[in-house]
Simulated assay, not measured.
Amino acid sequence: MESPFKGKTGLVRIWNAFNYSLAGLRAALQHEDAFRQEVLLAIVLLPIAVLYPHSGVEKALLIACVLLVLIVELLNSAVEAVVDRVSLERHELAKRAKDIGSAAVLLTLINLAAVWGLIFFG
């Protein structure tokens, strides 16, 4: 059975999707400490990436790594919210899901450090 919220098309669908995305960003900023910390990191790193005299490809890589951290953190937060919605009791599968999401964020942070290190010091 499909969601009753499906069915909008064209510009209405795009507008609604945009507003849902903004609501998701607001929710993450309001409820997720890690996301707020990573946004602060992005606020520091993105201007450096843009202003530092590198090639366009290097700038794109620097920016992409920062945005990837934010994207993966949003997905991790979504998984955690769903797991908590299903049940707050301790369960091995819930722990596994949360730990795997956390590992994904860790890998994106390692990727960020590696790419930035290679471009700036490499």
Rank of each mutant, 00 (worst) to 15 (best):
K98A: 01
N19Q: 06
L51R: 07
I14V: 13
L25S: 07
M1N: 05
P47V: 08
A97P: 06
I48A: 13
K59R: 14
T108A: 11
L67N: 02
F35Q: 06
F35K: 07
Y20C: 05
M1S: 14
A34L: 14
L106N: 06
F5A: 05
K8V: 15
W116M: 00
A64N: 07
H54V: 14
P47M: 09
E2R: 14
L25F: 15
G101W: 01
L67Y: 05
I110D: 06
V79Y: 03
T9Q: 08
V39A: 03
A114R: 00
R85N: 07
I71A: 15
L62A: 00
R26F: 12
L61Y: 10
L61Q: 12
L88D: 07
A60Q: 05
E80L: 04
R13K: 10
L22T: 01
V115D: 11
N76R: 11
V72L: 04
Q30N: 11
L70H: 04
L107S: 11
R13F: 10
H91Y: 06
L46V: 13
A78F: 13
L109H: 09
K59T: 15
R13V: 02
Y20I: 10
N16F: 05
L106C: 03
E38I: 05
S3M: 09
A104T: 06
E2F: 10
S77M: 12
T108Y: 00
F18P: 02
A114V: 12
Y20N: 12
L11I: 10
L40M: 13
V12S: 15
S21I: 09
A28N: 10
L67C: 07
P47G: 10
K59I: 08
V39I: 07
L118Y: 05
H91D: 15
H31V: 11
V72N: 08
G24I: 01
K59Y: 04
F121A: 09
Y52M: 14
L112K: 04
E89T: 12
A42R: 02
L88N: 03
V50Q: 07
V115P: 11
F121N: 02
A28L: 15
V39K: 00
W15D: 15
A42F: 05
I110R: 04
R85F: 12
K95H: 12
I48T: 09
K95P: 00
E2L: 09
G10S: 02
A34M: 07
V66G: 11
G117N: 05
G7H: 11
V115S: 08
L45S: 10
V83Y: 00
L51D: 14
K8H: 15
D99Y: 08
P53T: 03
L51M: 14
P53A: 02
K95N: 11
F5V: 08
P53N: 07
Q30W: 11
G101N: 01
A23H: 05
V72Y: 03
E38V: 03
A103T: 10
A103V: 04
N111T: 03
S77W: 13
L62R: 02
F120M: 09
V86H: 09
S87I: 01
I71F: 14
V39Q: 02
S87M: 00
L11A: 12
L74Q: 14
I110K: 04
H31D: 13
L41Q: 09
R90S: 07
L46A: 07
L68E: 15
Q37E: 12
Q37R: 06
L22R: 00
H91L: 03
A104D: 05
